[in-house]
């Protein structure tokens, strides 16, 4: 019941949107979310859009690992020198 799925907005009509999840389309209420545009990814929960998914943050979270790698690599030569 607390699981929600990332869905892509296909069309908007008033406070309702048609969204697609892996090829299947559903109707979702936009009553709880402003500024939704076609093409946005939104989180749907029991028929309501509850949040937009931030692409920037999604990439940022994944990037954290790369930073860690860089950090590791930059430390490593120093360690090798000891």
């Amino acid at each position: 019941m607390c699981l929600s799925i990332p869905s892509k907005v296909i069309s908007i009509n008033g406070d309702k949107a048609v969204v697609s999840v892996g090829g299947t389309t559903y109707e979702a209420s936009l009553q709880m979310l402003d500024n939704v545009n076609v093409g946005d990814y939104i989180l749907i929960h029991t028929g309501f859009a509850i949040q937009k998914i931030s692409e920037e943050e999604a990439l940022e979270t994944l990037k954290v690992f790369e930073d860690f790698d860089e950090l590791n690599n930059s430390i490593k030569p120093e360690l090798d020198n000891i």
Binding site: M1, C2, S29, H45, T46, G47, F48, I50
Partner: peptide, 30 residues
């Protein structure tokens, strides 16, 4: 969705439609 329950109530005015509202802050706003 609670919206489906509402639709049933709208379509069947002679019935009383009771929606069981359970769950935390994710479902309560719905």
């Amino acid at each position: 969705s609670v919206l489906d329950a509402l639709k049933i109530a709208q379509e069947l005015p002679s019935k009383n439609v009771i929606f069981l509202g359970i769950g935390f802050e994710t479902t309560a706003p719905a």
